[in-house]
Each structure stands twice: as C-alpha cells, then as structure tokens.
C-alpha cells in the first residue's frame, strides 16, 4: 500500500484494517475475521478466505464466544465491530470466555469516544474503563490510521487478548509517516517535545493536543505531547520522565474522565508516590453526551483544543 503522507489529512482506519487483515490472512492460515454485521471493510478477506470469515449477524455476544472457541484451537480471531456493542453487549463473554482463558482474540473497535455521531447508544465513552478492568486484557487506543497496520502485524506474536480502540474509523487523521516509527505494546510516543507542561492523550485527541501545543507555542509556552497509545500496560517511565521534566500534567481524552487514561495515570501516581506540581484531566463528564459530531461535543463538554489551551495557561499562571 503506497500513499503520500500528509500530517493531519484523513484516511480511513477501517480500510487499513481490511487490507492488513487480508495480508495477515494470506501469511497465516490461523487468522480469522469475525464480525457482527459490521464487517463492511472486510470484503477482500471474505472473498479470498471465506472459510475463515464469520458474520454472525447482529449478535456480538455470539461473535465473542465463537472467537473464544476458535482461539482455543490455536487460531487468531480478529473481531471487527462498533465499540459500544463489542465492549458492552459482549462484556461478560469478553471477560470469562476470552480473558479468563487468556486467549489471543483481537478486538478492533471503531467509533471511539463521541466520534460516531449516533448519540448516546452509539457513543463509546466507557470502553477503556471496561476493557482495562478485565484481567489479561491489553488496551490500546490508536488515532493514526496507519499505525493500526503495524499494531496488527506485531499482534501476531502476542499471546493475550488485545483490545484496540480506533477513532471514528472512516475519517482519521494521519499523524506519523508510515515506516518511521516502531510501535510496541507498553510504549508511548513523544509526539512533540516541550518543557513547561505535558499533555497526555490517546486516539484522535493526540491531534487535538498537538493543535493546542501549537497555539501555546505561539505564546511562548512549550508543551510536550505524549501519545499514550498503550493504556494497559502503561509506560510508567515515559510518564515519570514527563513529571520530572515538565512538572505539569494534563490528560486529554475522548472518554469519561472517570475510568479512562486519566484514572490509569492517577493510579500510577498513587502506586509510585509520584507528585506532579499540577495534574488535570479533560474529557467527558458524567453525562450521556447525546447527539452531535465529535467536534461539536468536545467543544460543548470542554475538552477541545481551546479548553486545553485555557487549562494549561491557568495552570502555569
């Protein structure tokens, strides 16, 4: 797949998932694709490997159970779906059929945060909280649509359940030029360096954080931006370094503030006796966020780039 890289321009992460899955299916005859009637991007896989493609219809629990069965026999099932239904309808199957048996099922969910536009039934604001609480589950959140390819490839050697939260899935902003970085479970990326404060973000909020950092730079405030794509496990060294070097930490995420990356980081602070000078979180408050585009809702609930800039300026006063 050859394409030109333009920072901030759009690409469909779902189409990257479709292409990569097809590639993996060719290389590994134990790779399966499963979906509960949301496999629009899996056309080439199902065409070439129909005996390793299962569409269960609108039945997410069933899908998770079947994936567990496949994995018990040494297969690597990828489930593609919409986040709320994949993580909530099938929650107990994910926990007990998959995580309890520590099976290498891959969940790839689209519509992270409030990006779906479908309102509160379709918003995904609890998924990280839910999935990270499952023992044995690894949780990644990926905004850059090219990054998902590398992650899927490296997941082939990962013997545990893996949840990957994507942003909207149809229109996702490119952040990193393909081939210029190596990704690893348990790592993070310093997407921009700075010494005055650090914004830690994941998913599509990394772009928003970079925008905020740009605005602040024009006012002489140098902000570091960390793309903490691996939420569980968390890169504590990267976190500690940010606290030491920039003292001020802001977490920005498209998730309920309670239970998301901010909570994971707060846990790490408590466990490690780490005390930043300032620690703030921006994200979704305890509301059913309702209808509107992701951008509109971010603004409404106060976690867009403008809000981030304001919080950091206040913090550094």
């Amino acid at each position: 797949m050859k394409m030109t890289f333009n920072f901030g321009s759009f690409l469909s992460a779902r189409s990257v998932v479709g292409e990569t899955l097809h590639e993996l299916g060719q290389k590994h005859n134990n790779v399966w694709a499963l979906t509960a009637d949301t496999g629009g991007a899996l056309a080439t896989f199902k065409k070439d490997f129909p005996d390793r493609f299962i569409d269960t219809g609108v039945a997410e629990q069933n899908c998770a159970g079947i994936a567990a069965g496949l994995a018990l026999e040494g297969n690597i099932p990828f489930i593609a779906g919409m986040i709320p239904f994949m993580t909530m309808r099938a929650c107990e199957q994910n926990r007990t059929a998959i995580c309890y048996q520590d099976l290498p099922v891959r969940f790839i969910g689209t519509g992270g945060g409030l990006t779906s536009g479908g309102g509160s039934t379709h918003n995904a604001m609890e998924d990280i909280s839910i999935m990270k609480s499952l023992v044995n589950m690894t949780v990644l959140s990926i905004g850059d649509p090219n990054m998902i390819r590398d992650i899927m490839i490296l997941s082939m050697d990962y013997p545990h359940p893996l949840y990957i939260r994507l942003a909207q899935g149809k229109k996702d902003r490119m952040l990193y030029e393909p081939g210029t970085r190596t990704y690893k479970i348990g790592e993070g990326i310093t997407a921009r360096d700075g010494k005055d404060a650090t914004i830690i973000a994941h998913g599509e909020m990394v772009y928003v954080a970079l925008e905020a950092a740009k605005t602040l730079a024009a006012e002489g405030i140098e902000v570091r931006v960390i793309d903490m794509y691996s939420i569980k496990p968390l890169n504590k060294n990267l976190l500690l370094k940010a606290v030491k070097e920039t003292r001020n930490i802001v977490v920005l995420e498209d998730h309920l503030m309670e239970g998301g990356l901010a909570s994971v980081i707060a846990d790490a602070f408590v466990d490690g006796n780490i005390y930043p000078e300032n620690f703030k979180r921006l994200g979704i408050p305890q509301v059913f966020a309702g209808f509107g585009s992701g951008e509109e809702l971010r603004k409404k609930y106060g976690y867009d780039d403008t809000a981030t800039v304001a919080v950091i300026k206040q913090m550094l006063k």
């Binding site: 536009g117 309102g119 379709h122 309702g290 509107g292």
Partner: peptide
C-alpha cells in the same frame, strides 16, 4: 435532525 442538542437524534431518546 441529527444536529447538536436536537431532540430528533439518529436514535430515539425518550428523555429528549
């Protein structure tokens, strides 16, 4: 329809 804060969302909301 479908706009921010609309009562007429893509999926029906009893409260709104």
């Amino acid at each position: 329809y479908g706009r921010l804060d609309s009562a007429y969302g893509m999926h029906p909301c009893k409260i709104q």
